[in-house]
Computed example of a mutant assay.
Amino acid sequence: MINLEQMDLILEALPDPAFILSRSGKYVAVFGGRDTRYYHDGTGLIGLYISDVIKPEKANWFLEQIARALESRKLVVEEYELSNRDVKGLDDDGPKDPIWFEGRIQALSFLVDDEEVVLWVASNISERHNLEGKLRELSDTDQLTGLFNRRKLEHDLTLHYESWLRYSIPTSIFMFDLDNLKKINDTKGHHAGDEIIQAVANICRTTIRKADTACRFGGDEFVVALPNTGHEQAMQFAQRLHERIREELRQFSVEGTSVTASIGVTTMLTTDRSYEDTLKRADRALYDAKSLGKDRIVLV
């Protein structure tokens, strides 16, 4: 049998910190947190309230999770971040990267000072969270250009289409590919073609807004999604991009042949059954731009 003294030693040896917290947010007890790579000594919190330590918005979130656990009597698991902006008394100029935790909150079957209490175990998951973020970024990114890939585009267009259906927030799309790239590849080699595609990616990055999604759709074909943008503004964006491509890719000209762009532009319509209908219409407009002689914009 384990006696009380031994149980205290076991609790103190826990690598992750375990807090006993009251419904009102009082730190009743703190155990563990012995992995000094991730945690500081939390015993100084005992007797304080979450609102004494954490700024109001985040403190209210903690209290909400405590209430959820007490009312459901089930284990509540939540991931959350804490940074210098959340903790009272810390300089806002401190480390900008937040620390990510997984909180496991369970109601306990006794009272402390006539208040319900929970056990809150906090595990530092920052390394895992950062790794997951990097993996998501890799899965969403085209390796050659650093632009988003088709997978990310389809995800964003799905959300934009839902916004269009629910709130009538328009999203425009322009699809473009590069004219005469094959001749450059045949003359200078595929490394020159890669340089051109990378140059176009840089033009996209410096032309579009933060809310927009620029994607390498495949080969020398690109798609840009412009949320909250109607026909007229989308056309302005396309014209700006078209001119920049024409100007900045002149350096890659071969025997009087320049790399230019053919662009198809469209906006989500009430008749579209999905974002795919919009994308197909942009593709048809691009085909028309090619058929009419390249180096032009077709709006449909």
Rank of each mutant, 00 (worst) to 15 (best):
Q106M: 13
Y287C: 08
N228I: 05
S139W: 00
E81T: 02
R296N: 14
Y38D: 09
D277A: 14
K134T: 07
S51I: 03
K74P: 00
T267Q: 13
R281L: 06
R23T: 06
S123M: 12
Q236P: 04
W100Y: 10
N149F: 08
D212A: 13
T158Y: 05
N130I: 06
R104Q: 12
V265H: 04
S258I: 07
K290A: 12
A29S: 15
S72R: 03
D288G: 12
R281K: 09
W120N: 08
R216L: 08
Y275I: 05
A67H: 07
E12G: 11
Q198H: 08
A59W: 01
D8Q: 15
S51W: 00
L75T: 06
I203N: 12
R284S: 13
R34T: 11
S51H: 03
R273L: 14
S168L: 15
T43P: 05
T171V: 14
I99W: 00
V118Y: 02
T278F: 00
N124Q: 01
F217W: 09
D277Y: 01
V28T: 09
D277E: 13
T213H: 11
Y167D: 14
L111K: 02
S168I: 08
I203W: 04
L147R: 04
R246Y: 11
R205N: 14
D8S: 15
D114Q: 13
E115Y: 01
